[in-house]
Protein backbone atom coordinates (compact mmCIF):
# COMPACT_ATOMS: atom_id res chain seq x y z
CA UNK A 1 0.00 0.00 0.00
CA UNK A 2 1.44 3.39 -0.94
CA UNK A 3 1.87 5.96 1.84
CA UNK A 4 -0.52 8.86 2.32
CA UNK A 5 2.00 11.16 0.66
CA UNK A 6 1.73 9.31 -2.68
CA UNK A 7 -2.01 8.69 -2.46
CA UNK A 8 -3.95 11.09 -4.77
CA UNK A 9 -6.91 10.87 -2.40
CA UNK A 10 -4.82 12.76 0.18
CA UNK A 11 -3.09 15.19 -2.15
CA UNK A 12 -5.15 18.17 -0.87
CA UNK A 13 -3.84 17.72 2.70
CA UNK A 14 -0.65 19.31 3.94
CA UNK A 15 0.61 16.97 6.66
CA UNK A 16 1.40 18.49 10.04
CA UNK A 17 4.67 17.03 11.30
CA UNK A 18 5.11 16.24 14.97
CA UNK A 19 6.75 18.65 17.38
CA UNK A 20 8.36 16.34 19.93
CA UNK A 21 9.49 19.30 22.03
CA UNK A 22 12.94 20.80 21.54
CA UNK A 23 16.26 19.26 20.51
CA UNK A 24 16.32 16.57 23.21
CA UNK A 25 12.76 15.71 24.25
CA UNK A 26 11.95 13.25 27.05
CA UNK A 27 11.08 9.73 25.92
CA UNK A 28 10.63 10.58 22.25
CA UNK A 29 9.80 7.54 20.15
CA UNK A 30 11.70 6.51 17.01
CA UNK A 31 8.47 6.12 15.05
CA UNK A 32 8.23 3.98 11.94
CA UNK A 33 7.79 6.08 8.80
CA UNK A 34 4.27 4.68 8.37
CA UNK A 35 3.14 5.73 11.84
CA UNK A 36 4.81 9.09 11.66
CA UNK A 37 3.18 9.87 8.31
CA UNK A 38 -0.28 8.68 9.36
CA UNK A 39 -0.11 10.82 12.51
CA UNK A 40 0.93 13.86 10.49
CA UNK A 41 -2.16 13.46 8.33
CA UNK A 42 -4.34 12.95 11.41
CA UNK A 43 -3.08 16.17 12.99
CA UNK A 44 -3.83 17.95 9.70
CA UNK A 45 -7.41 16.66 9.38
CA UNK A 46 -8.10 17.27 13.08
CA UNK A 47 -6.91 20.84 12.71
CA UNK A 48 -9.60 21.45 10.10
CA UNK A 49 -12.19 19.24 11.80
CA UNK A 50 -12.64 16.97 8.84
CA UNK A 51 -14.95 14.00 9.25
CA UNK A 52 -15.04 11.79 6.17
CA UNK A 53 -14.72 8.27 4.90
CA UNK A 54 -11.00 8.71 4.43
CA UNK A 55 -10.68 9.93 8.01
CA UNK A 56 -12.38 6.74 9.21
CA UNK A 57 -9.86 4.67 7.29
CA UNK A 58 -7.02 6.78 8.66
CA UNK A 59 -8.18 6.25 12.26
CA UNK A 60 -8.45 2.51 11.66
CA UNK A 61 -4.92 2.49 10.30
CA UNK A 62 -3.53 4.34 13.32
CA UNK A 63 -5.48 2.28 15.87
CA UNK A 64 -4.07 -0.80 14.23
CA UNK A 65 -0.53 0.49 14.80
CA UNK A 66 -1.24 1.91 18.27
CA UNK A 67 -4.46 0.75 19.95
CA UNK A 68 -3.71 2.79 23.09
CA UNK A 69 -4.14 6.12 21.28
CA UNK A 70 -7.16 7.62 23.09
CA UNK A 71 -7.36 10.69 20.83
CA UNK A 72 -7.79 8.60 17.69
CA UNK A 73 -10.57 6.54 19.27
CA UNK A 74 -12.46 9.66 20.34
CA UNK A 75 -12.00 11.30 16.95
CA UNK A 76 -13.19 8.15 15.22
CA UNK A 77 -16.37 8.10 17.33
CA UNK A 78 -17.06 11.71 16.34
CA UNK A 79 -16.53 10.83 12.68
CA UNK A 80 -18.89 7.86 12.87
CA UNK A 81 -21.64 10.04 14.32
CA UNK A 82 -21.07 12.98 11.99
CA UNK A 83 -21.24 10.70 8.95
CA UNK A 84 -24.31 8.83 10.29
CA UNK A 85 -22.58 5.53 9.69
CA UNK A 86 -24.30 2.22 10.31
CA UNK A 87 -22.88 1.68 13.78
CA UNK A 88 -23.60 -2.03 13.86
CA UNK A 89 -20.87 -2.48 11.25
CA UNK A 90 -18.36 -1.09 13.75
CA UNK A 91 -18.46 -4.38 15.64
CA UNK A 92 -17.23 -6.33 12.63
CA UNK A 93 -13.72 -5.12 13.26
CA UNK A 94 -14.10 -4.13 16.90
CA UNK A 95 -14.83 -7.65 18.22
CA UNK A 96 -11.85 -9.50 16.78
CA UNK A 97 -9.76 -6.47 17.73
CA UNK A 98 -10.86 -6.68 21.38
CA UNK A 99 -10.07 -10.37 21.51
CA UNK A 100 -6.59 -9.65 20.13
CA UNK A 101 -5.87 -6.75 22.46
CA UNK A 102 -7.08 -8.00 25.83
CA UNK A 103 -5.42 -5.30 27.91
CA UNK A 104 -6.59 -2.38 25.79
CA UNK A 105 -9.18 -0.28 27.55
CA UNK A 106 -9.93 2.56 25.13
CA UNK A 107 -11.90 0.02 23.16
CA UNK A 108 -14.42 -0.40 25.99
CA UNK A 109 -15.24 3.25 26.16
CA UNK A 110 -15.66 3.24 22.40
CA UNK A 111 -18.00 0.27 22.62
CA UNK A 112 -19.99 2.01 25.33
CA UNK A 113 -20.35 5.10 23.11
CA UNK A 114 -21.48 3.05 20.11
CA UNK A 115 -24.00 0.91 22.01
CA UNK A 116 -25.41 3.98 23.72
CA UNK A 117 -25.92 5.67 20.34
CA UNK A 118 -27.52 2.57 18.82
CA UNK A 119 -29.85 2.16 21.79
CA UNK A 120 -30.92 5.78 21.89
CA UNK A 121 -32.16 5.46 18.30
CA UNK A 122 -34.37 2.49 19.22
CA UNK A 123 -37.57 2.15 21.19
CA UNK A 124 -36.76 0.70 24.64
CA UNK A 125 -39.20 -2.13 23.95
CA UNK A 126 -37.86 -2.95 20.52
CA UNK A 127 -36.77 -6.58 20.10
CA UNK A 128 -33.66 -5.18 18.45
CA UNK A 129 -32.56 -3.99 21.88
CA UNK A 130 -32.96 -7.48 23.32
CA UNK A 131 -30.91 -8.89 20.48
CA UNK A 132 -28.22 -6.33 20.95
CA UNK A 133 -28.01 -7.04 24.69
CA UNK A 134 -27.78 -10.77 24.10
CA UNK A 135 -24.98 -10.26 21.61
CA UNK A 136 -23.16 -8.09 24.09
CA UNK A 137 -23.53 -10.63 26.87
CA UNK A 138 -22.28 -13.41 24.61
CA UNK A 139 -19.30 -11.35 23.56
CA UNK A 140 -18.45 -10.50 27.18
CA UNK A 141 -18.65 -14.16 28.13
CA UNK A 142 -16.12 -14.83 25.37
CA UNK A 143 -13.84 -12.11 26.72
CA UNK A 144 -14.06 -13.65 30.19
CA UNK A 145 -12.95 -17.04 28.91
CA UNK A 146 -9.66 -15.27 28.04
CA UNK A 147 -9.35 -13.08 31.13
CA UNK A 148 -12.00 -13.59 33.78
CA UNK A 149 -10.87 -10.63 35.91
CA UNK A 150 -10.46 -7.94 33.25
CA UNK A 151 -11.35 -4.75 35.12
CA UNK A 152 -12.55 -2.76 32.12
CA UNK A 153 -14.69 -5.56 30.76
CA UNK A 154 -16.41 -5.95 34.12
CA UNK A 155 -16.94 -2.18 34.36
CA UNK A 156 -18.50 -2.27 30.91
CA UNK A 157 -20.74 -5.14 31.91
CA UNK A 158 -21.98 -3.13 34.92
CA UNK A 159 -22.81 -0.21 32.68
CA UNK A 160 -24.79 -2.57 30.44
CA UNK A 161 -26.79 -3.81 33.45
CA UNK A 162 -27.63 -0.31 34.54
CA UNK A 163 -28.29 1.10 31.09
CA UNK A 164 -30.62 -1.71 30.00
CA UNK A 165 -32.16 -2.50 33.35
CA UNK A 166 -30.85 -6.05 33.49
CA UNK A 167 -31.34 -6.39 37.24
CA UNK A 168 -33.72 -9.30 36.84
CA UNK A 169 -32.02 -10.78 33.81
CA UNK A 170 -31.25 -14.45 34.42
CA UNK A 171 -28.26 -14.32 32.06
CA UNK A 172 -26.46 -11.89 34.33
CA UNK A 173 -26.58 -14.07 37.40
CA UNK A 174 -25.93 -17.18 35.31
CA UNK A 175 -22.83 -15.67 33.76
CA UNK A 176 -21.51 -14.95 37.25
CA UNK A 177 -22.50 -18.41 38.48
CA UNK A 178 -20.63 -19.99 35.61
CA UNK A 179 -17.47 -18.08 36.37
CA UNK A 180 -17.70 -18.79 40.10
CA UNK A 181 -18.21 -22.48 39.41
CA UNK A 182 -14.96 -22.39 37.44
CA UNK A 183 -13.12 -20.28 40.02
CA UNK A 184 -14.82 -19.52 43.32
CA UNK A 185 -12.01 -17.06 44.08
CA UNK A 186 -12.86 -14.75 41.17
CA UNK A 187 -13.52 -11.60 43.18
CA UNK A 188 -14.60 -9.64 40.10
CA UNK A 189 -17.45 -12.09 39.63
CA UNK A 190 -18.46 -11.71 43.28
CA UNK A 191 -18.43 -7.96 42.88
CA UNK A 192 -20.67 -8.21 39.83
CA UNK A 193 -23.10 -10.47 41.63
CA UNK A 194 -23.29 -7.96 44.47
CA UNK A 195 -23.99 -5.23 41.96
CA UNK A 196 -26.72 -7.15 40.14
CA UNK A 197 -28.47 -8.19 43.37
CA UNK A 198 -28.01 -5.13 45.58
CA UNK A 199 -26.86 -2.34 43.29
CA UNK A 200 -30.20 -1.67 41.64
CA UNK A 201 -32.01 1.56 42.36
CA UNK A 202 -34.29 1.01 45.36
CA UNK A 203 -32.83 -2.41 46.15
CA UNK A 204 -35.10 -3.94 48.79
CA UNK A 205 -33.96 -3.38 52.36
CA UNK A 206 -35.90 -4.35 55.43
CA UNK A 207 -39.00 -5.80 53.80
CA UNK A 208 -40.09 -9.43 53.65
CA UNK A 209 -38.88 -9.51 50.06
CA UNK A 210 -35.57 -8.05 51.17
CA UNK A 211 -35.08 -10.67 53.84
CA UNK A 212 -35.81 -13.52 51.44
CA UNK A 213 -33.20 -12.07 49.11
CA UNK A 214 -30.73 -11.63 51.97
CA UNK A 215 -31.12 -15.26 53.05
CA UNK A 216 -30.79 -16.54 49.48
CA UNK A 217 -27.52 -14.66 49.00
CA UNK A 218 -26.12 -15.65 52.39
CA UNK A 219 -26.85 -19.28 51.53
CA UNK A 220 -25.07 -18.84 48.22
CA UNK A 221 -21.96 -17.44 49.88
CA UNK A 222 -22.09 -20.07 52.64
CA UNK A 223 -21.94 -22.83 50.04
CA UNK A 224 -18.87 -21.17 48.54
CA UNK A 225 -17.23 -20.87 51.97
CA UNK A 226 -17.70 -24.56 52.63
CA UNK A 227 -15.60 -25.56 49.63
CA UNK A 228 -12.77 -23.09 50.41
CA UNK A 229 -13.10 -21.40 53.82
CA UNK A 230 -9.92 -19.35 53.46
CA UNK A 231 -11.28 -17.62 50.33
CA UNK A 232 -11.98 -14.05 51.41
CA UNK A 233 -14.44 -13.17 48.63
CA UNK A 234 -17.58 -14.86 50.02
CA UNK A 235 -16.80 -13.65 53.54
CA UNK A 236 -16.62 -10.07 52.28
CA UNK A 237 -19.80 -10.70 50.32
CA UNK A 238 -21.72 -11.80 53.41
CA UNK A 239 -20.42 -8.90 55.48
CA UNK A 240 -21.46 -6.54 52.70
CA UNK A 241 -24.95 -8.01 52.66
CA UNK A 242 -25.43 -7.74 56.43
CA UNK A 243 -24.26 -4.17 56.33
CA UNK A 244 -26.66 -3.40 53.45
CA UNK A 245 -29.56 -4.72 55.53
CA UNK A 246 -28.16 -3.15 58.71
CA UNK A 247 -28.18 -6.54 60.38
CA UNK A 248 -25.82 -7.51 63.22
CA UNK A 249 -22.93 -9.80 62.36
CA UNK A 250 -24.16 -12.18 65.07
CA UNK A 251 -26.68 -13.42 62.49
CA UNK A 252 -23.89 -15.55 61.11
CA UNK A 253 -22.18 -16.51 64.36
CA UNK A 254 -22.83 -20.20 63.81
CA UNK A 255 -21.22 -20.01 60.37
CA UNK A 256 -18.14 -18.28 61.75
CA UNK A 257 -17.93 -20.77 64.63
CA UNK A 258 -17.85 -23.66 62.20
CA UNK A 259 -14.47 -22.48 60.91
CA UNK A 260 -13.00 -20.85 64.01
CA UNK A 261 -13.54 -21.25 67.71
CA UNK A 262 -11.68 -20.00 70.76
CA UNK A 263 -12.32 -23.33 72.46
CA UNK A 264 -10.28 -25.06 69.78
CA UNK A 265 -7.52 -22.56 69.03
CA UNK A 266 -5.47 -25.17 67.15
CA UNK A 267 -8.21 -26.07 64.71
CA UNK A 268 -8.98 -22.76 63.04
CA UNK A 269 -9.81 -23.26 59.35
CA UNK A 270 -10.22 -19.67 58.24
CA UNK A 271 -8.63 -16.42 59.38
CA UNK A 272 -11.65 -14.58 57.97
CA UNK A 273 -13.96 -16.62 60.19
CA UNK A 274 -11.78 -15.85 63.19
CA UNK A 275 -11.83 -12.10 62.49
CA UNK A 276 -15.59 -12.24 62.01
CA UNK A 277 -15.93 -14.07 65.31
CA UNK A 278 -13.89 -11.35 67.01
CA UNK A 279 -16.18 -8.69 65.54
CA UNK A 280 -19.22 -10.61 66.79
CA UNK A 281 -17.73 -10.82 70.28
CA UNK A 282 -17.15 -7.09 70.14
CA UNK A 283 -20.77 -6.57 69.11
CA UNK A 284 -21.84 -8.77 72.05
CA UNK A 285 -19.56 -6.77 74.40
CA UNK A 286 -17.42 -9.85 75.13
CA UNK A 287 -14.31 -7.76 74.70
CA UNK A 288 -11.93 -10.31 76.25
CA UNK A 289 -12.97 -12.93 73.74
CA UNK A 290 -12.64 -10.47 70.86
CA UNK A 291 -9.11 -9.61 72.01
CA UNK A 292 -8.18 -13.29 72.28
CA UNK A 293 -9.36 -13.93 68.73
CA UNK A 294 -7.27 -11.07 67.38
CA UNK A 295 -4.28 -12.26 69.43
CA UNK A 296 -4.64 -15.62 67.80
CA UNK A 297 -4.64 -14.02 64.35
CA UNK A 298 -1.62 -11.87 65.17
CA UNK A 299 0.43 -14.64 66.69
CA UNK A 300 -0.56 -17.74 64.82
CA UNK A 301 -2.87 -17.55 61.86
CA UNK A 302 -2.12 -14.27 60.11
CA UNK A 303 1.10 -12.76 61.49
CA UNK A 304 1.85 -10.53 58.46
CA UNK A 305 -1.11 -8.43 59.64
CA UNK A 306 -0.17 -8.64 63.34
CA UNK A 307 -0.04 -4.84 63.73
CA UNK A 308 -3.48 -4.47 62.24
CA UNK A 309 -4.93 -7.15 64.53
CA UNK A 310 -3.23 -5.49 67.51
CA UNK A 311 -4.69 -2.15 66.47
CA UNK A 312 -8.16 -3.66 66.46
CA UNK A 313 -7.53 -5.09 69.90
CA UNK A 314 -6.26 -1.74 71.18
CA UNK A 315 -9.34 -0.02 69.84
CA UNK A 316 -11.46 -2.29 72.05
CA UNK A 317 -10.01 -0.38 75.00
CA UNK A 318 -11.23 2.85 73.44
CA UNK A 319 -14.65 1.29 72.87
CA UNK A 320 -14.85 0.12 76.50
CA UNK A 321 -13.89 3.53 77.90
Amino acid sequence: MPGYGEDPEWSDIVPLPQDDGGPNPLAAIAYSDEYSEAMSYLRAVMAKNEFSERVLRLTEDIIDMNPAHYTVWLYRAKALFTLHKDLRKEFDWLNPFALRHLKNYQIWHHRHTIIEALASDLDEKSPKIDNMIREEQDFLDRMFTKDAKNYHVWSYRQWLVERFNLWDCEEEREAVDDLLRKDVRNNSAWNHRYYVVFGRPNAPKNTTEGHVLMQREINYAEAAIRIAPQNQSPWNYIRGILSHFQQPLSNIKSLASEFASLEKPDEVKSSHALDLLAEIYKEERQLDCAGKAWDLLAQKYDPIRSRYWMWKKEQLGTAAA
Binding site: I29, A30, Y31, N66, A68
Partner: peptide, 16 residues
Protein backbone atom coordinates in the same frame (compact mmCIF):
# COMPACT_ATOMS: atom_id res chain seq x y z
CA UNK B 1 13.92 5.52 29.86
CA UNK B 2 13.98 9.28 29.13
CA UNK B 3 16.13 8.93 26.00
CA UNK B 4 14.75 8.09 22.56
CA UNK B 5 12.70 4.91 22.69
CA UNK B 6 12.72 2.25 19.97
CA UNK B 7 9.92 2.18 17.40
CA UNK B 8 8.17 -0.89 18.80
CA UNK B 9 7.30 1.19 21.87
CA UNK B 10 4.84 3.16 19.75
CA UNK B 11 1.97 1.97 21.99
CA UNK B 12 3.36 4.45 24.53
CA UNK B 13 2.82 7.33 22.12
CA UNK B 14 -0.18 8.59 24.10
CA UNK B 15 1.67 8.01 27.40
CA UNK B 16 4.83 10.03 26.88
Amino acid sequence: SLEELPGYMVVLDASR
